[in-house]
Design a protein around this nucleic acid. Structure first.
Lengths: 110, 110
DNA sequence: CGAGTATATGTCATATTCGACATGATGCCA
DNA sequence: TGGCATCATGTCGAATATGACATATACTCG
């Protein structure tokens, strides 16, 4: 379950974590995992804006709440990748697009 | 949260779901999500075998249990994508590889 | 036929994640 | 200045995922 200790530490800091594998002694796996999440967050925000939706509207669309959408986009540690991916798919993203976002770590407009 | 109803139905059937978007009236998003999970499951099994690890060994590696590894590989509905991705990363897969698996839905050796 | 190894399946207590709600903060326009 | 819309943050009970364990099913190799 991801070492609990480091996880704790990371969560306390909210992992602003620019986008790096730097920072505290995260294993490469942990870093990769976090970067994937951040990339998905970023992409979610972009896709939502591109569609001119408010967080409230997106929340309705995915049957969630505005606060959770905000947390998703903020890369909140309490949000799962499952949820982020489902939100992206609900916004119309394809598997290919989601895959690209995960691969790259980073933006990915579409 | 994925409509609960359909989800129920799918879970009851354990979604053997060959690998298709066929089956019951799943929305495209739901299908895509399920296929991603199955693709990751499949990839996990392949990667583990390629390294000649038993489920017990992999379980130790990712600090989980043999039974959960079996469920991951079986595409059990009670296993999250988060866990599948972490397992793949722990096996040494790169973000790019994980992204490819998710994009394609399907094998993806490496 | 055992015994050993690998994988599958079911259950359970605990941990994590969820949606919802309240509330704060910011920006904008009249 | 005061609404008004948007996004952020904190908390909470309910829902879901987790690791561990027991146990069942193969599939070898003597």
């Amino acid at each position: 379950m991801m070492h609990a200790n480091k996880r704790k530490k990371v969560e306390e800091n909210g992992w602003k974590v620019g986008n790096a594998d730097d920072f505290l002694g995260l294993t490469p796996e942990e870093s990769a995992y976090i970067e994937m999440k951040l990339a998905l967050s970023h992409s979610l925000k972009e896709n939502r804006r591109k569609k001119d939706l408010s967080q409230v509207e997106l929340a309705k669309l995915i049957k969630s709440s505005q606060s959770r959408v905000a947390k998703m986009e903020a890369g909140d540690p309490g949000v799962s990748i499952d949820l982020l991916m489902r939100a992206l798919l609900a916004l119309g993203a394809s598997s290919e697009e989601v895959g690209k976002v995960i691969s790259s770590g980073k933006p990915q407009a579409a």
